[in-house]
Each structure stands twice: as structure tokens, then as C-alpha cells.
Design a protein around this nucleic acid. Structure first.
Lengths: 220, 220
DNA sequence: ACTTCGGTTATGGCA
DNA sequence: TGCCATAGCCGAAGT
């Protein structure tokens, strides 16, 4: 990638419309075509653009204008004064990051260990289609004999409450009783409150749902 | 900020849990404490961390271990081999980017020009509290005399449909009839279909809702 | 400090 | 390709 330290300004038009006043910043031109304008704060670029098809360069009044574009977007960068310019070589095939404890893995864990969360639930199926999209887990309440719609989240929000209620709505046309359940690692108070008002059961995953358990699953 | 080109690996634990195998990458250490690990693809860092309170450095077997942490997160970076190291100075007070055509500006535009979208609607208030969060615009249908709950989006999704229906649910305890309306620049087909099934009116903002109109508004 | 919501969200998966 | 849901979403504003 190429790194340029310069006083620059920018204009973007595409998904949104932005104007960036001039300041001394870092411009990164990655080998895959990605362009990033960085300042010294935070982790997000101020302006950026990916999937660039067209690039043009102009010189006007001693300033360099860079024009990046694709079918839907346009980014203009004006380099007022260049202080440094350098090229660095990184690994072409960067081995990808390994993510653990994702919602997908949590869902697989709970599918296999539902009774650890609550003894009375019996797992029936995963990603069961309701008509409003698939519910994460469909289970049976061994005490009541009724059905259970379970929505799983790493962090449950009020949206999760409405989501599981939608599934229950849809499933109630097929089953006599459907009980809404939210299972998550974290709930905030307002979510628990709303769930309680709406009759949605909230269950927390034991914090020791462990890496060892994963060995049983294959994601692919 | 400091830039380091090195063969490095990383482990993060906090909001999630990740493992990054070694490769030659760019490490950015920003002046505000932000740490970024970049490769030569895309606009996102592979690993990163912000709001760091604690930093420790260790040397083991000729390798440098960097340990960044705060109350909730921990990031370890192992520098196996360092190729380059440099320090660059950027502007301390980066003037902030100017965003146009944001949802907020769209909301203000529609507040003042609701009759341009549909003659029969009369604006009553903005950000009206429903009990399930504020509805963007509360209006009156001059033909029916009923109330109108309007949700505004740059791009409307199926979630927007459920959102406005929640507001209507809540408002119906206060008003006799409440009509759900979605106003957006873009709708996708499935959103329009769902809205139609659920009795939610979809209205598109004329593409010439112009910058000139903004002059009337003050955001602050 | 926590919650809520918009974002040029990005990104991966699947129809 | 478009649409959907997740993400270590981030960041900002309000409480």
C-alpha cells in the first residue's frame, strides 16, 4: 500500500454526500484499490471508498486532484501540500481472523445443550421457518406439552423481544400454544422489563459454555 | 501516530473473542490511543481497540508483546519481526466532516414540506413520544380527521414497517384512529410488499428535495 | 455510565 | 444480484 501524509480536502458523493475541509491527514491507498483518509482519532476513516473502477489524476494550481469512482460513487481528494510519501509491502494472503463465541456458535451450542439452560425444554429443530423468517430454535415444553419459540442473541435488545413475538404470532396458526423465549449472554434492564410485560421468558446462558463443547460441532 | 510494519499475530477478548494468525501487516498507534491492525484489503482494520487505559510491553524469546486493555477488553499483539517503524504528525484539531442528506435533514425537510409528499397530511409535531420511543412525525389526515404516525428513513427496510406499527399500537390507546405511514428515499420490493400486507402506506420523497430548501432550517 | 439509533454502516450468506 | 441479519458493529446524543 501507499501512504501519503498531506494537507488534503475531500468531497464524496454516493451512498451519502459529504464535504471534508482541508487538514493534514494520512491517505492510504491499498493494493486492492481501497482508499482511506485517516486522522489521528478513532478507528474509522473520515472518508473512504472501496471497489473503485476508475481513477483520474489532475494538476490544478499546483495542487493534485485525485478522482476515484465507480458506478454509484465518486470521491475527490485534493492534495494541497504533500509532506511524505512511502510504499509498504504487506502479505498478499493474509490468513483470516478466527472468531469465537459468535451468535452462530452460540446457537449451535444451545441446540445441543438446551436442557442445560432449562430442563423442561426439549430441542426439536433449528432455523425453523415460521413465515416471518426462521426462528432460531423450535422446542417443546415437556411440562405443558406446548411449543416453544426460542430466539438467541449474544446481546438481547427490545427488538429481540418483538422478533420472537412475531414468530410466535405466526406459529400460533399451526400450534395450539407457543411460548416465546429469549436466550442470551446479556440482557439490559429495559429489555428484561419489556419481555416481562409481553410474557417473554428470558434465560441467560451459563458463563461457562465452553470452548470444549465446540469440538462436537462442524460449521461447514 | 506511529506506524509499524511487522509480522504480527493478535488475540482479542472483549465484545467478542478473536485469534489472528501471524502475517506481515501494518500496525497503527494513533495519538488518541486507538490501535489498528491493517492488512492490504478493504477499509476495516482486522483487529483494533479504542479507549485504552492500560498499556504494557514485554519481551519474550526476541518477540515484543504489546498488551492493551480497558475495563472490558484486552488486546494482545505479538510482534514477531519488525520491518519499519515511523512517526507522523497530523493536525490535532481536524475540522469535522460535513454530512448532507442525512436522515435528520430529511426529517426536517419533510416536517416543513409534508403537503408536498401528500396533500391530505397536516404536520403536527416531530419526535413525538409514543411510549415505544419517539415517532418521527405525528400528523393529521385532513380527509379522515384521523392521526398519522410517520416513520422516515433514507432507506426503508422490513424493520421500518414493524417499527411504525409499534408506534401505532402505542398511539391507539390515546387516539381513535392512527394510520401508519413510511416515507423514504428508497424502498426495496419486499419492504413494499410487507407494508402493503400490513396496511402501511409507503411514500417516496421526490428526488429533487433540494439543498435550497435547507436554508430555511437551523439544526441548532 | 448506560441506552438508543443512525450509518456512505460493512460483511457474509443465501435465494 | 439483491436481500437479510450479524457485527468485537462504531459513534453520537440523550438520560
Amino acid at each position: 500500500m501507499k501512504l501519503i501524509v498531506a494537507t488534503l480536502s475531500a468531497n464524496y458523493n454516493g451512498r451519502g454526500l459529504t464535504e471534508l475541509p482541508p487538514a493534514k491527514r494520512l491517505l492510504m491507498l491499498k493494493d486492492d484499490g481501497t482508499v482511506l483518509i485517516m486522522n489521528d482519532k478513532g478507528f474509522k476513516p473520515i472518508n473512504y471508498m472501496t471497489t473503485i473502477n476508475e481513477f483520474n489524476q489532475e494538476h490544478k494550481d499546483g495542487e493534485t486532484h485525485l478522482l476515484f469512482s465507480n458506478k454509484k460513487e465518486k470521491l475527490e481528494i485534493i492534495l494541497h501540500e504533500i509532506f511524505q510519501e512511502s510504499e509498504i509491502e504487506l502479505d498478499l494472503n493474509d490468513p483470516s481472523i478466527i472468531r469465537e463465541q459468535t451468535e452462530e456458535k452460540l446457537q449451535l451450542y444451545i441446540s445441543k445443550n438446551l436442557s442445560k439452560i432449562d430442563e423442561k425444554y426439549e430441542f426439536l429443530s433449528r432455523e425453523f421457518e415460521t413465515g416471518f423468517g426462521p426462528v432460531d430454535i423450535l422446542a417443546k415444553n415437556k411440562e405443558t406439552g406446548g411449543m416453544v419459540a426460542i430466539e438467541i442473541k449474544r446481546t438481547a435488545t427490545i427488538n429481540s423481544v418483538y422478533q420472537v413475538l412475531r414468530y410466535v404470532d405466526s406459529l400460533e396458526s399451526r400450534y395450539e400454544t407457543v411460548e416465546p423465549v429469549l436466550i442470551a449472554l446479556n440482557f439490559n434492564d429495559s429489555t428484561k422489563r419489556l419481555a416481562s410485560n409481553k410474557g417473554v421468558t428470558c434465560l441467560t446462558v451459563p458463563s461457562d459454555w465452553s470452548e470444549e463443547e465446540f469440538e462436537e460441532f462442524t460449521l461447514f
